[in-house]
């Protein structure tokens, strides 16, 4: 364990999993949608549903949807700030089988009408993991540079995407591909050792059949 995992993070209380992790969940959904979120439906599951209110979990998730960091002192006032910004949201509960007890499923829409549905959990220490994206299973945390490519399932598209990454001298550490059905929607999650530059995103976006490319570079969360 590194020194700043033991002393830290600096965060708004009361709970690293139910508050700091909840902010991170909101934040990663914001990054997955891109742009400013105007509408969100947030379903809390397990311990998030049963003890979330007292931990400020709903306020923390909404703060994350607005791009706040876990140590932002505006977190307790996030509902009021969301209203000022024109972000509308509603909360519900859900039951997830096989998911970590601290989980939420969020459907969010940005000002361009683009939508994302993501399921994520917060197992502890403020760390999070996305386990579902747009109805397909996934597994990533955004702690390392990550590229998320949504597309139609077509022969050869994996190698075309990875070709672009290799051409930039970026090393991939993990590659996941999930699809709905043969020829249906597919989601590719690529974790990399180096920061993913904008031009990689643009080059992949230009590939036929690719519908959306998201890059998550650590340290650029609030952008």
């Amino acid at each position: 364990m590194n020194v700043f995992d033991i002393l830290g993070p600096v965060m708004v209380g009361p709970s690293s999993s139910h508050t700091a992790g909840a902010v991170r969940i909101g934040q990663i959904v914001r990054r997955l949608v891109g742009g400013e979120i105007v509408r969100a439906k947030i379903l809390l599951a397990g311990s998030f549903a049963s003890t979330g209110a007292g931990h400020g979990t709903p306020r923390a998730i909404v703060a994350g949807l607005m791009g706040f960091m876990p140590d932002d002192e505006r977190i307790p006032r996030s509902f009021e700030l969301a209203a000022e910004r024109g972000l509308t949201f509603d909360f519900g509960t859900t039951v997830l089988r096989g998911a970590h007890p601290n989980s939420a499923v969020i459907t969010a829409e940005n000002d361009r009408g683009e939508r994302v549905e993501a399921g994520a959990s917060s197992p502890g220490g403020g760390r999070i993991r996305v386990f579902e994206l747009d109805g397909l299973p996934a597994s990533f945390s955004g702690e390392v540079p990550t590229l998320i490519v949504r597309s139609e399932d077509r022969p050869g598209y994996v190698s075309r995407v990875t070709g672009v990454i290799a051409a930039q001298g970026i090393n991939m550490s993990k590659l996941q591909v999930e699809r709905e059905a043969r020829g249906g929607r597919a989601v590719m999650v690529i974790e990399c050792d180096q920061r993913i530059p904008y031009k990689v995103k643009m080059a992949i976006t230009a590939i036929e059949g690719i519908s959306k490319v998201t890059r998550l570079n650590p340290g650029e969360e609030s952008k």
């Binding site: 002393l7 993070p9 209380g13 009361p14 220490g125």
Partner: peptide, 21 residues
């Protein structure tokens, strides 16, 4: 109490134990 009231704290090693150090 600051932790319970959603103030900024240093988890040390956790948020619940942030008052000891």
């Amino acid at each position: 109490e600051c932790n319970a009231c959603m103030k900024r704290i240093v988890a040390a090693p956790t948020a619940g134990a942030c008052g000891v150090l």
